[in-house]
Design a protein around this nucleic acid. Structure first.
Lengths: 202, 202
DNA sequence: TTCGTCATGTAATGGGTTACATGATTAC
DNA sequence: GTAATCATGTAACCCATTACATGACGAA
């Protein structure tokens, strides 16, 4: 997951870890909280060791005598290698079960414009099936327990069901546009054009 | 998380691991996939060692000579101890940052009827703030990138924003009922009464 | 000169997963 | 008698988190 996102972002432009994290936060912000450094840097190291990214010599091109053991200086700019591009393409093409959960789907979707059309369709349909299963489980739970459950559990399931339904509808629209060979049209749904009251409550 | 859910379910009635998993799946199905045995059983062991649950002698009350090293026989019925009840009460009362993410909130909400009113309110408000932050991040990202991003990334953010907005509205309703001293009223929103076409598509 | 933010990293830990292994009970 | 499902568990692993530690650089 992190690996995929990092390769994808570096595919667009080289950057250093800190910047990467900010970009990452923006990209995955719709479905996940920020990534911690404790996972970012070790991952960068792993990717470097795998040969998918390289450190672009930052500034002091010459002397680099014995870097301090801790608290590393100067920015390290990372850049995708040819192998890294291949790896990214590989990840782009996969469409297995991991691709259908919240996180996997989110990250794949974020790079959909680089994904080929048939893979896009397969991912969207797989995701839809996944959500439908969740929905069916909730419908079942609701019809089974009806009356026997407390108001809060009931409300949680009701809300979960509503969200699942909505998600399925969203996916249906996307699948339809895919089939028609069109990119998603932002205009069909509520565009966040005029949000009158961004902090408005109580 | 697992610990909390297990204690909560055993609070309602004693049961064995397999049954527990089914109940668990139903309870958390609205926001999370099923729990695996590889995490369930070790957790049960931990809870037993902590003294929060006990194994209720299943059936063969007498002879229990040298159980086979693997493939354990007979059901093991778990039951909450007095300490376990205390522990559960402790978990019910907490309302920290972990309580506001998807999973933490979901599990707390599922046991809201056993949570006292002021804690309920604090959790709902904390959760709302969390979602508002996500929403604000998305609004920012959308206004910043506008036009510069591809259609899919844009659509992902748009959809994320819409979901966040909806979630905030839901929480607002819940908070309002809490303040009015009422349990959530299922009737206000779409009740899943008449779903005409549960499998209806293409 | 001190504070905030930029910037990089490690160590310890945690909470899960998949795959494996075994066996009892029930329905056909 | 055999297949499905009920039932319990271990081992290896994975991916991430928090807390910690260090230090450069710009602005007040």
């Amino acid at each position: 997951m992190l690996e995929f996102a990092i390769l994808g972002l570096l595919h667009e432009s080289s950057m250093h870890g800190y910047e990467l994290r900010k970009q990452l936060t923006a990209t995955i912000g719709a479905f996940r909280a920020a990534v911690s450094y404790g996972s970012l840097y070790p991952t960068l190291r792993r990717l470097r060791e795998a040969g998918w990214i390289t450190e672009d010599a930052p500034d002091a091109a010459g002397a680099e005598a014995a870097p301090p053991l801790t608290g590393r200086r100067g920015k390290v700019v990372y850049k995708l290698t040819a192998e890294g591009k291949e790896r990214f393409a590989e990840l782009l093409a996969e469409a297995g079960p991991e691709t259908y959960d919240d996180e996997g789907f989110g990250i794949h979707f974020a790079f959909f414009s680089r994904t080929d059309a048939s893979t896009r369709l397969r991912i969207l349909e797989g995701r839809r099936r996944r959500i439908e299963e969740r929905r069916d489980g909730l419908v079942e739970a609701l019809s089974r327990t009806r009356e026997r459950l407390d108001a809060y559990t009931l409300e949680l399931q009701r809300h979960g069901l509503e969200s699942a339904d909505r998600e399925v509808r969203w996916l249906n629209e996307l699948i339809a546009s895919e089939r028609a060979g069109q990119p998603p049209s932002v205009s069909t749904a509520e565009t966040p054009k005029d949000r009158p009251d961004p902090r408005g409550r109580q």
